[in-house]
Design a protein around this nucleic acid. Structure first.
Length: 695
DNA sequence: GAGCACTGC
């Protein structure tokens, strides 16, 4: 390896460059009063057993504490227990701990319950969508996704039952984490008793701290209450991860797939046992890499024999995904070729070598065209470190970066662009509106999105009748749409279905549109999949086709075999059932009675148009075959080949979303009558004369 | 006639 690879100078470190087994402590000098002489100076070493005392001191004195550290440092599981022991969960108060992902919530909650020797769902519980394992009045440590906490704010904006809120993985800067942090800063002004603990990777600690210290407004004084210090404290904890040796390539590669393959082969021939994890960007890359490695394995003098090659991406059927968790057979070495799913969402034991391409697919939003694009883009240093860390879970490991050290140091951005600045903001804005945040542009964003994106979101919500002329939520539509946990266009469609008497059918469509795909990923068997689709295909379009599939699924007795036979993803159908159930409960609470329109698809189609009128397109009669233009901005779009309307090309259609590749493809397409547009949204579309070519 | 990084409510 040494001929080609150059070891990197950087050692993964925390705030200070010290040895393991200590906590590094950085806080304003107020800590001196605590009685520990060694806390008088900033960033003093602190023995590990003082972690508990330090945390409790900081939480007592500071409104916000920022805890940085790596995985395995115990911050996620220990801090809530310390707080409970110190009395933060007394008097009916609850300690909340958020995570960005459902799986993490479940596993952390059960670990803490086990450590405390209590039954999960009693003192320690968790809440995620579709699953509430808490016992109100008994549960005092509650784990939940940050999205669920945001939903809870809609009923209780000041989160009055919580004494401490710990936001974990804040450095990931997800849409809901950032929204939550902005709101929590606001809540703090009204609730001086509330304590925040932000748990973040080292690299983000300073910007988090700056966000929570800068305040345009003073806290509202509550008589008799102790006012904690507004400046956040930072405490840094050493993780238990093993060291990972970083190797950079001597020069840059033009083809990272090939580079990854040859790196895997040289690791295999020169390094001791241990599984290899390769980070590529997407299904295409991964399949190409798997194929190349397999071919090499069959060559007579192959250097890759003994490799067990496993692809990993979220679109892969569950059974194939699970293969990566099976133990490595004796005498074999596992090579997992993965997307970013292995960077945070899945933890693979047994990985000792990581190969990092330096790229990932990232979403970018263009507020002008209102289209989200998926682009292969360079990752950040934070991501690169996270990927490298995946090699140090079981023993010291190695990470091979397919780029030069100079590139890493000089060109790679420190942090990625927060999701907030790369996304469509309609859901975020409606959530803020429902919490009474009137001035969206002036909201204290931790990373402000482009004003164009905020304005576009306001426009879309206004056109849906969710916001009024003063940009306030309308009654009842606006409040009802905010209440439904789906894309506002889908929520609006459901509310209209109530008026058209077809809510039974439309909530099914809403559920299908809210999940990834109901088809199993079948690149090799496209023909068969197309044949199956014909069995369900409806002339009206994809939405009605989904209804036919759902009926077939119910008629089969929700059978997994039926799904398998019809190339339908059983897991996805189960999720459709869950979302439907959630919607039924919610709509009942909103005072709606579910109704079926039986076979009247006209009502259904009009309800869909009431939500998606802004996504209307017209076939270009004089252009090439199958070219459409959006009515809104005259963008060129095409019907996606997976749609039942592909090659049918009705004159007028609406779509659910757009997939951009070399062309813009409409996904989930429905044929419409243009008169429904002016009927559903007269403020949005005005009749220009009689429709000449169309009608 | 061809495509889907990853979450979440």
């Amino acid at each position: 390896m040494s001929r080609f690879w150059k070891p990197g100078a950087e050692r993964p470190q925390l705030l200070d460059d010290e040895e393991g087994g200590v906590i590094f402590f950085s806080a304003p000098s107020s800590a001196a009063g605590y009685g520990y002489a060694n806390l008088e100076r900033q960033r003093q070493r602190l023995p590990v057993y003082k972690f508990r005392t330090a945390i409790l001191y900081l939480v007592e004195k500071h409104a916000t504490s920022i805890v940085v550290g790596e995985t395995g440092s115990g911050k996620t599981t220990q801090i809530p227990q310390y707080l409970k022991e110190a009395g933060w969960a007394e008097g009916g108060r609850v300690i909340a701990c958020t995570q960005p992902r459902r799986l993490a919530v479940q596993s952390v909650a059960s670990r803490v319950a086990e450590e405390m020797g209590v039954k999960l769902g009693e003192e320690v519980g968790y809440t995620i969508r579709f699953e509430d394992v808490t016992n109100p009045g008994v549960t005092v440590i509650k784990f939940l996704t940050d999205g669920v906490l945001l939903r809870e704010m809609m009923d209780d904006p000041l989160l009055t039952k919580y004494s401490v809120i710990m936001v974990d993985e804040a450095h990931e800067r997800s849409l809901s984490t950032d929204t939550l942090l902005g709101l929590l800063k606001k809540v703090q002004r009204r609730r001086p008793d509330l304590r925040l603990i932000i748990s973040s990777a080292t690299i983000e600690a300073k910007s988090m701290s700056a966000f929570f210290s800068s305040s345009k407004k003073r806290p509202i004084q509550v008589p008799g209450d102790h006012i904690p210090e507004a400046v956040p404290a930072i405490i840094s904890v050493e993780g238990k991860g093993f060291p990972v040796e970083i190797h950079y390539s001597e020069e840059s590669f033009s083809n990272y797939v090939e580079a990854a393959i040859s790196t895997v082969i040289s690791i295999h021939s020169q390094e001791p046992a241990g599984d290899i994890l390769v980070f590529l960007t997407g299904q295409d890359d991964i399949e190409a890499a798997v194929r190349l490695l397999m071919e090499d394995g069959q060559a007579p003098e192959s250097r890759s024999s003994g490799l067990l090659i496993l692809p990993l991406y979220s679109g892969l059927p569950r059974a194939e995904q699970d293969l990566v968790f099976s133990p490595t057979p004796k005498g074999k070495r596992k090579v997992i070729i993965s997307t970013n799913i292995a960077e945070t969402s899945l933890t693979l034991e047994g990985v000792v070598y990581v190969v990092d391409s330096g790229f990932s697919k990232q979403r970018f939003y263009n507020p002008i065209s209102d289209i989200e694009n998926l682009v292969v883009a360079p990752i950040s240093k934070a991501s690169a470190r996270q990927r490298a860390g995946r090699a140090g879970r079981v023993r010291p490991g190695k990470c091979f970066r397919l780029y030069t050290e100079e590139y890493f140091v000089k060109e790679m951005p420190n942090e990625g662009i927060p999701e907030m600045q790369r996304s469509n903001l309609v859901s975020c804005v409606i959530q803020l509106k429902s919490l009474g945040i009137d001035n969206i542009l002036g909201f204290d964003w931790i990373s402000p999105p482009a004003p164009e994106s905020m304005i576009r979101a306001l426009e879309v919500l206004y056109s849906l009748g969710v916001l009024d002329d003063d940009a306030k939520l309308t009654t009842p539509t606006g409040f009802q749409v905010a209440e439904i946990p789906l894309d506002p266009m889908i929520s609006k469609m459901i509310l209209s279905a109530n008026e058209y008497g077809c809510s039974e059918e439309v909530i099914t469509i809403a559920a299908v549109l809210s999940i990834q795909s109901i088809w199993v990923s079948m690149r090799g068997a496209q023909r068969e999949l197309d044949d199956v689709k014909l069995r369900f295909a409806a002339a009206e379009g994809d939405h009605i086709t989904y209804l036919n599939i759902y009926k077939g699924f119910l008629n089969s007795g929700k059978s997994p075999q039926w799904c398998h036979k019809n190339f339908i993803n059983y897991q996805a159908m189960k999720k459709v059932l869950e979302i439907r159930e959630q919607l039924i409960k919610l709509l009942k609470r909103l005072g709606m009675i579910l109704k079926s329109c039986e076979k009247d698809t006209l009502a259904i189609r009009k309800a869909i148009v009431a939500g998606f009128f802004a996504h209307a397109c017209r076939l270009e009669t004089f252009g090439q075959n199958g070219m459409y233009k959006t009515l809104r901005s005259s963008q060129e779009v095409h019907i996606h080949p997976s749609s039942v309307l592909f090659r049918v090309n009705p004159k007028w259609v609406i779509y659910n979303s757009i997939v951009s590749t070399d062309r813009q493809y409409m996904r989930h397409v429905l044929a419409i009558d243009p008169s429904w547009l002016t009927e559903a949204a007269p403020h949005f579309y005005q009749l220009q004369k009689p429709y000449p070519a169309a009608y």
